[in-house]
């Protein structure tokens, strides 16, 4: 297996997964779509996947190991509803002044989503760049460098009952890839003999291996 796959597996299962501690949930692949409700509160999601890679040219080396600058994309999605004292508002005996006070003290969803994403960026950066995770949970020698070189925060979705905010980080890792080569299969056996009943002169070649020869 190429090392970028080993790194990805370790990043998801040994680094982000255990460190989540109920503060977010990690998805190790790209989803087709998700519902806004799936990303509310501490269900905010972190999608991690291999996004791109560069193989630098090694002078004097045609074959053998190559340096791989692998880029992993960490995409974050948070959602928020408005927070208000529903107990006061839905209390049939509440007076208008009490309801007005509850309305005046509500927390709007846009600012909750903004704070939630800032907090998630803080958490993810802290986990990935922690000195104890310098090897991203792997044995020494696989990874020579890891860094988060970009963080991007997007505009909130313009519509919807929940405010949804997304962001992304690019995590660059440098590792060495040693091509293992693919072992060819033994080939599929097929029968090219034509057996016409009672007619020995029409028989053609005997069965052989794919890519081999037909004996006539």
């Amino acid at each position: 297996m190429m090392n970028f796959r080993v790194i990805k597996h370790s990043l998801i299962n040994k680094v982000l997964g255990p460190a989540a501690a109920g503060r977010f949930h990690t998805v190790g692949y790209q989803r087709q779509s998700s519902a806004a409700q799936q990303n509310i509160g501490n269900e905010r999601s972190v999608q991690v996947f291999y996004a791109a890679g560069e193989f630098s040219r090694s002078a004097g080396r045609i074959n053998g190991a190559k340096q791989h600058e692998a880029v992993f994309r960490i995409e974050m999605t948070v959602g928020a509803a408005a927070r208000v004292n529903l107990s006061a508002i839905n209390d049939p005996s509440a007076k208008p002044a009490q309801i007005a006070a509850a309305l005046a003290n509500y927390h709007n969803a846009s600012s909750l989503a903004d704070n939630a994403l800032d907090e998630l960026i803080d958490i993810i950066y802290g986990i990935v760049m922690d000195a104890r995770n310098v090897d991203l949970g792997l044995a020494k020698g696989i990874l020579s460098e890891r860094r988060i070189n970009q963080v991007q925060k997007d505009d909130p979705l313009p519509r919807g009952e929940y405010v949804v905010l997304t962001g992304a980080m690019n995590l660059s890792c440098r590792c060495v890839e040693q091509p293992c080569g693919e072992t060819p299969g033994t080939g599929e056996h097929f029968n090219v003999a034509v057996d016409l009943a009672g007619d020995d002169t029409e028989q053609t070649g005997a069965a052989g291996k794919l890519g081999g020869y037909i004996k006539t």
Binding site: Q30, R31, Q32, S33, S34, A35, A36, Q47, E75, T77, G79, Q152, D154, D155, L157, R159, G160, E161, Y162, V164, T166, G167, A168
Partner: peptide, 17 residues
């Protein structure tokens, strides 16, 4: 029901009452 494409490229499904 809306299906919106955020800047990350993922589609988000959200209601709009």
């Amino acid at each position: 029901c809306l299906r919106l494409h955020p800047d990350t490229g993922e589609r988000i499904v959200v209601g709009e009452p």
